[in-house]
Every structure is written in C-alpha cells, then in structure tokens.
C-alpha cells in the first residue's frame, strides 16, 4: 500500500455565492417534492410495515459464521465503532434484508440502543 503525504493539505475553497445558490436550489427541490406529494397522495396509502421476523430468524440459522448478528459492534475504517444493522427492502412483493454497518454515533443507532436498554431494565 502506498502512502503519499501532500505537503499542503488541499484547502477546498468553495465560493460562498455558489454554495448559497446551490443551497437555495436544493431547498426548492425539496419543497417542490413535498408539495407535489401532498397534492398527489390525497388517499393515504395502506400500511404494510410489519417486520417479517421470519427473515431474521432464517438468516440467523443459515448465515455464514463470519456474518455475526445484527446489533454486533465492529470497529470501522474511521477508527470508530459501527453496528451491524439490517435494511429491510422489497424486491417486487418479496421482502429481503441486507446487511449494513451504521456508525455507533448515528442517531439511528442511539435510538435503538436506548430502546433496547430500556427493555432490558423492565
């Protein structure tokens, strides 16, 4: 592996006017997205948000040894810790889970960990 040290760390100079203009466009796009959905989706969608527990159990049984379990902490490249999560996605009508590492300090992880801790105390 090759390591090169640049003498001067590259200072990225972002033109403030450009940044501001970009931010404006981004917000406009967000707002427009929200507004259009509000109009479009008069009828609320039906909810299908059950967590398919069978998927997790299945993967626990047949998962490779190296896979570990959801919720395991592993050191990440940046030197912090990451937590193994599963992302639930739909492929057509089929549900699937995929593995994903989320940094420990992400609000997502914090929230889950807190809930887990609270449950344990009960």
């Amino acid at each position: 592996e090759e390591h090169i040290k640049m003498k001067q760390k590259k200072v990225v100079e972002v033109d403030p006017a450009e940044a501001e203009e970009f931010e404006r466009e981004l917000r406009a796009l967000m707002q427009e997205s929200i507004d259009s959905r509000k109009l479009e989706m008069r009828a609320r969608p039906t909810l299908n948000m059950m967590i398919p527990m069978n998927l997790f159990e299945g993967s626990k049984d047949h998962g490779r040894i190296t896979d570990g379990e959801s919720g395991d902490e592993v050191p990440d490249e940046q030197g912090g810790n990451s937590v193994r999560f599963r992302v639930l996605v739909k492929k057509g009508n089929k549900q699937q889970t995929k593995q994903l590492y989320i940094p420990r300090d992400s609000s997502l992880v914090q929230s889950t960990k807190q809930k887990e801790a609270a449950e344990l105390e009960e």
Binding site: S70, V83, R86, S111, T112
Partner: peptide, 8 residues
Amino acid sequence: PAKSESVV
C-alpha cells in the same frame, strides 16, 4: 429504525 431490532 425499528424499536427493538437492529433493523432499518
């Protein structure tokens, strides 16, 4: 995130 599982 899910409330109890490590699922998003």
